[in-house]
C-alpha cells in the first residue's frame, strides 16, 4: 500500500525516460513531402501550395522547428502570385532561420528589388501577360 506512490513515481520516471529515448525528429515535416511532389508534377499546384502553407502553420503553432527550405519555398510561391513584399519577407525569414541560405536568399531578394525598381510599363506588361494565361 505504501508502495503505491513510489511505484507511480517509478513508472512515471520510466515512461519519461522512454519518451526521451524515442527518436524525435529535429523538424516538423507535416505534408512537405506531398507538397513538393504535387508542385513538381504540377498536377495539383494549388494543393501542393496548401500543404506547404499548412505545414508551416502547424509547425509554428506547435512550437516545432520549421525545416530548412520551407520559408524559401513559401516565399517563391508568393513571388509567383505577384506578392513581391511577401516574397522578400519570407526569403528574409529563411536566411534569418538558416544563415546557410544567406547568399541565395540575398540574391533572390536583390532580384525582386530590381524588379520593383524597373519601369512600371514593364511591370504592367508582365502582369497582363500573367492575366492572359488560361
Amino acid at each position: 500500500m505504501n508502495n503505491q506512490p513510489v511505484r507511480l513515481v517509478f513508472i512515471s520516471i520510466f515512461s519519461l525516460s522512454l519518451w526521451a529515448c524515442a527518436p524525435k525528429s529535429l523538424f516538423y515535416w507535416g505534408d512537405y513531402e506531398t507538397s513538393i511532389y504535387d508542385r513538381w508534377i504540377g498536377i495539383d499546384n494549388n494543393l501542393g501550395e496548401q500543404h506547404l502553407q499548412q505545414t508551416i502553420t502547424n509547425a509554428e503553432q506547435s512550437g516545432r522547428k520549421v525545416p530548412p527550405g520551407l520559408y524559401a519555398d513559401y516565399g517563391f510561391m508568393l513571388y509567383r502570385r505577384g506578392n513581391l513584399d511577401g516574397a522578400i519577407a519570407y526569403f528574409d525569414k529563411e536566411r534569418k532561420t538558416f544563415p546557410e541560405s544567406s547568399l541565395l536568399m540575398s540574391k533572390l531578394i536583390d532580384k525582386i528589388h530590381e524588379k520593383q525598381k524597373s519601369p512600371p510599363a514593364q511591370d504592367s506588361q508582365s502582369t497582363s501577360e500573367e492575366g492572359k494565361k488560361p
Binding site: E33, Y37, W40, L70, D73
Partner: peptide
Amino acid sequence: VFTSTITAPLAERGYYVFPVYL
C-alpha cells in the same frame, strides 16, 4: 518521387538542405 523524399532524411542528419523544388 526520389527528390520529394530526399529533403527530410538529409535535414534530419543535421544539414541545411536547399529547397529541392526551388
